[in-house]
Design a protein around this nucleic acid. Structure first.
Lengths: 130, 130
DNA sequence: CTTGACTTTTGCCATTTGTCTAATTACAAT
DNA sequence: ATTGTAATTAGACAAATGGCAAAAGTCAAG
């Protein structure tokens, strides 16, 4: 059961866009040069533990979590049966959308989601009636 | 609050002596060259996470333990992004909102923003008319 | 004292990491 | 479509990492 090489860069980029941050902003927050961050995201470099540690919190990661994702730590049995592994694959939030929404208070953000949900239910209602 | 230096080398050497192992033996057990191990022990080199991980078990360390000793992990260790990290970032997209939105196609994401913009203009129209 | 089997240290060098700066690209606004 | 600006990528280096092989040390017999 060989652990496949995960694309850490992709994960990091997804997370950065969801925060959202630009490379330069993350660079400032983490004290890591933006060019290096960019190379890491596109897989041209692999971050050292020191770098990984610096970017963990600005991205909202737990250090352990990120170290495990990077393959530095062996995925510890993950103690409690509780869930803790978000599905890091395939998601993508449009950067522009993320930026605009992030400027709104959280209540507004959530209200937007509520509206979206309503619209979706209406839409599916329409189509299912067919 | 610069990172303080710990003499990891001394700790490692002590541990190796107590096992006990020679550099060569540890080299075989860990797949790290004995010369490199020697330099690490006397502080001429600092081990990468990859190397540290390899020598942990043969020396009887837990990976986390050794990583913490090396300063790769913060002693407190636990500090999940969801709860205990106050505000490392000023503006932020609510994680739940981000997750939900990210599942929608980009067109939908942008449509949501459009709707939000319209609602906001209507709202400001109402309030300014006062 | 010398030999011989060890362990540890050193010299050298290929590879990788990370920064600074300069280019290039993307994209909102006109 | 054009343009101004922010964001990403690329070029060129300096520094650190880690391996291999040869050079010291170490020490118990002979």
């Amino acid at each position: 059961m060989e652990e496949k090489r995960i694309d850490l860069g992709k994960i990091l980029k997804q997370q950065r866009m969801m925060v959202p941050l630009t490379l330069k902003e993350l660079a400032v927050a983490s004290s890591v040069s933006s060019s290096h961050l960019g190379r890491i995201e596109r897989g041209e470099r692999f971050p050292s533990a020191r770098i990984l540690r610096r970017i963990a919190r600005p991205l909202g990661f737990d250090e352990d979590e990120l170290f495990t994702l990077a393959g530095f730590l062996t995925p510890t049995g993950e103690g409690v049966a509780g869930e803790s592994s978000p599905d890091y694959r395939g998601r993508q939030l449009d950067p522009y959308v993320a930026r605009i929404l992030a400027e709104e208070p959280v209540e507004v953000q959530r209200a937007v989601i509520s509206i979206l949900t309503i619209l979706k239910s209406v839409a599916t209602g329409l189509t299912t009636v067919k």
